[in-house]
């Protein structure tokens, strides 16, 4: 089957390898295999696969990862444009 890939060069994921302690938590939580730990340091292998869910940053005990996490949903973004609120799944109660 053809591979599902989304728009490139937009992801806000950042890794500070200096701070990383290589605990491997980010590799465990990432649902798209973006992060891999090699030689006790995390690496971003395929950043365009990142969906900015925020799991890695939230579970990094030393805050070596940064990402502008959010909901990848058109309705949520339209709702946020109209109301000025942060995009969330609370858009009209149906999504």
């Amino acid at each position: 089957m053809a591979e599902l890939r989304y728009i490139e060069d937009v992801v806000t994921l950042e890794l500070d390898a200096e701070i990383c302690i290589g605990c491997g938590m980010c590799q465990i939580v990432c649902p798209h295999g973006v992060l891999v730990v090699e030689e006790r340091k995390a690496l971003i292998t395929d950043r365009d696969r990142c969906i900015e869910c925020g799991a890695c940053a939230g579970n990094c005990p030393v805050e070596a990862l940064r990402v502008k996490a959010g909901v990848g949903c058109a309705s949520a973004i339209i709702h946020s444009w109209l109301t000025g609120e942060e995009p969330s799944c609370d858009c009209g109660g149906s999504c």
């Binding site: 890939r5 728009i7 937009v10 992801v11 798209h32 969906i51 900015e52 990848g72 949903c73 973004i77």
Partner: peptide, 20 residues
Amino acid sequence: SMHFTGSSTFTSPSGVEKEM
């Protein structure tokens, strides 16, 4: 189809905003 981004498992919010 654009609204199906919310159901998908591989779209990033930055990407969705850009395409919109």
